[in-house]
Every structure is written in structure tokens, then in C-alpha cells.
Amino acid sequence: MQQNKKDDADLDVFFEAARATPYVPPVPLVDRILNDAASQNAPFWHKIWSELGGWPVTVGLATACSIGIVIGLTSPMLVSDIYMSEADIWASDNLLLDVSVFMDEG
């Protein structure tokens, strides 16, 4: 019993020291906690928007839409200039055939 009381008194010195040296949360941790608090209290639509990716996704989506509209409004000729039509392909095949005929005949 006496020994237990002495042990308790000895340990109390350590417990008092621990209470006297409290842990202080680092500033970045406090910032993260407050950011969480702000985002949890945001309006419903804002929470959905944040969950979907927030600003980076919004900017990406807006850019993709703009490019789509520009392509849609530009003349279709632009596309036909890049790719050969079916008729052009047939024509090129016939031209190759004609050249081989000339080569066979020497």
C-alpha cells in the first residue's frame, strides 16, 4: 500500500510535466481544419461543384465547349481540304493502274 502511494507520487511528477507541455497544433493543420469547416458549410450546389472537381474541371469544360463551338461554326470545306473524298481515292487508284499499264508495255 505504502509502495503504491510512493509510485503514484513519483508518476505524478511525470504527469504534471506532460500537462505542462501541451501539444500545439501546427498552423497548416489549423488552416486545413478551417478550410474543411468552410467547405462543409457551403451551399448545396457549391458542395456538388467542389466534389466534381471545382475550378480546374470548370475551366477544362469551358475550354472544351468553346473549341467545339468554334469547330462547329467554321466552314465544312476546311475538313474536306484535309481529307480526300471517296471520288479522289478512286481517281488516285486509277492513276496508279494507268502507270503500271505503261510500265508493262515498256
Binding site: F14, E16, A17, A18, T21, P22, V24
Partner: peptide, 19 residues
């Protein structure tokens, strides 16, 4: 990972030993 020395070296050392 002990707390910073805010309440004297002795307290910090004891707190460290306890931890």
C-alpha cells in the same frame, strides 16, 4: 515528436521520458 520546450527543460525531459 515531443512538444516544444515551452515549460522548461525539466518538464520537457520528463514529458519526453513519459511519452
Amino acid at each position: 515528436t515531443q512538444p516544444p520546450v515551452t515549460a522548461g527543460l525539466q518538464n520537457a525531459a520528463r514529458s519526453s521520458a513519459l511519452q
